[in-house]
Simulated assay, not measured.
Amino acid sequence: MLTIGCHLSSSKGYAAMAKEAEKINANTFQFFTRNPRGAKAKEINPEDVQAFHEKAKEICIQRILAHAPYTLNACSADERVREFAVNTMRDDLKRMEYTPGNCYNFHPGSHVKQGAEVGISYIAQMLNQLLTKEQTTTVLLETMAGKGSEVGRNFEELREILDRVELQEKMGVCLDSCHVYDAGYDIVKDLDGVLNAFDRIIGLHRLKAVHLNDSMFGLNSHKDRHARIGEGKIGLEAIIRLINHPALRHLPFYLETPNDLEGYSREIALLREAYKES
């Protein structure tokens, strides 16, 4: 069965997200842990969490994916920004244990003229400070499009971070289809080649989730502008090949396309129809 969902608003709580997922025939979803452009996080309501667990069991919700706020930059040149990243992720990982066994995704950040090597060092330092043997959450590095001074613009940079993390079993990667295409990995004409490179450099066993997005600007653009499925430079045929690829088809897919709930529902229906059950 295709495990697919979209990004849902967490403002009304976990149970409300599960109910929205049910409405659009999703069996997973992604959400922001807090205001994506700020610092504030909504207090967790244990009753809401319990209601979520009951609903998730009823409708067979699979692994959900929490997304760190965009303001989290673990490799900033500003020490206060790095401290904010540490405090935010520490709090987020604590909150994630209300829904154990799921994943937490974050953008590696921007090194802001310090150089990728310095940025990688800061990111690994933060992860080594925060990850614990007791946590049930897997932390995911997201593949990036390579705009500006982003870290994670290629598989080698992600591998460098992972190699420096002590508790590597707590780590994984989220592949964003728009980002990797914009970064120069041709998933349209050479998906096998891209996945072979990922396996050689990082290891496919580390790939835990896929952000499923079309790309507005396309290969090597380094723009990071998402498009609706089939309306961008990647195109529907390539997206269908991606969800059916033997190395990817078992993973959860999360839509981040510019859509409302009705639009997500249409995309989910389209992709379910195109998914080839094994």
Rank of each mutant, 00 (worst) to 15 (best):
residue 2 L to Q: 01
residue 4 I to L: 10
residue 6 C to L: 06
residue 9 S to C: 07
residue 11 S to N: 13
residue 12 K to S: 14
residue 13 G to P: 01
residue 13 G to T: 08
residue 13 G to D: 02
residue 15 A to W: 10
residue 15 A to Q: 01
residue 17 M to K: 02
residue 18 A to H: 01
residue 21 A to M: 08
residue 24 I to S: 12
residue 27 N to I: 11
residue 27 N to H: 08
residue 29 F to M: 04
residue 31 F to Y: 13
residue 32 F to R: 03
residue 35 N to T: 14
residue 35 N to V: 14
residue 37 R to T: 11
residue 37 R to L: 10
residue 37 R to Q: 11
residue 40 K to I: 15
residue 41 A to H: 11
residue 45 N to F: 06
residue 48 D to H: 02
residue 48 D to T: 04
residue 51 A to L: 02
residue 51 A to I: 07
residue 53 H to S: 11
residue 54 E to S: 13
residue 55 K to C: 13
residue 59 I to P: 00
residue 63 R to Q: 12
residue 63 R to K: 15
residue 64 I to P: 00
residue 64 I to V: 15
residue 64 I to D: 00
residue 65 L to V: 13
residue 66 A to P: 03
residue 67 H to L: 08
residue 68 A to Q: 06
residue 70 Y to W: 10
residue 72 L to C: 08
residue 75 C to E: 00
residue 78 D to A: 09
residue 78 D to S: 07
residue 85 A to C: 08
residue 86 V to I: 15
residue 86 V to D: 09
residue 87 N to C: 05
residue 89 M to N: 10
residue 89 M to Q: 14
residue 89 M to K: 10
residue 92 D to C: 15
residue 92 D to T: 12
residue 94 K to T: 15
residue 95 R to E: 03
residue 95 R to I: 02
residue 97 E to Q: 11
residue 101 G to T: 03
residue 101 G to Y: 03
residue 103 C to K: 09
residue 104 Y to I: 10
residue 106 F to P: 06
residue 109 G to H: 01
residue 109 G to V: 08
residue 110 S to T: 14
residue 111 H to D: 02
residue 112 V to A: 14
residue 116 A to P: 08
residue 118 V to F: 10
residue 119 G to D: 03
residue 120 I to L: 01
residue 120 I to T: 01
residue 120 I to E: 02
residue 124 A to G: 04
residue 130 L to A: 09
residue 132 T to N: 01
residue 132 T to E: 02
residue 133 K to P: 15
residue 133 K to W: 13
residue 139 V to N: 00
residue 139 V to M: 04
residue 140 L to Q: 08
residue 142 E to A: 05
residue 143 T to C: 11
residue 144 M to Q: 05
residue 144 M to I: 05
residue 149 S to V: 12
residue 152 G to Y: 05
residue 154 N to T: 07
residue 156 E to N: 05
residue 156 E to F: 12
residue 163 D to K: 06
residue 167 L to P: 11
residue 170 K to D: 04
residue 173 V to I: 13
residue 176 D to G: 09
residue 177 S to F: 06
residue 178 C to W: 09
residue 179 H to D: 04
residue 183 A to Q: 07
residue 183 A to I: 07
residue 187 I to M: 06
residue 189 K to A: 15
residue 192 D to R: 04
residue 194 V to I: 06
residue 195 L to N: 03
residue 196 N to E: 14
residue 197 A to I: 14
residue 204 L to D: 07
residue 205 H to Y: 14
residue 208 K to D: 01
residue 214 D to C: 07
residue 218 G to W: 07
residue 220 N to F: 14
residue 228 R to V: 15
residue 233 K to R: 10
residue 233 K to C: 13
residue 235 G to I: 06
residue 235 G to C: 11
residue 236 L to W: 00
residue 240 I to F: 12
residue 241 R to N: 14
residue 241 R to T: 05
residue 241 R to L: 01
residue 244 N to L: 03
residue 246 P to N: 09
residue 248 L to G: 10
residue 249 R to S: 10
residue 251 L to W: 05
residue 253 F to W: 00
residue 256 E to N: 01
residue 258 P to Q: 08
residue 260 D to Y: 06
residue 262 E to S: 14
residue 264 Y to W: 09
residue 267 E to M: 07
residue 267 E to G: 04
residue 268 I to D: 02
residue 268 I to F: 09
residue 270 L to Q: 02
residue 271 L to T: 07
residue 273 E to S: 14
residue 276 K to A: 10
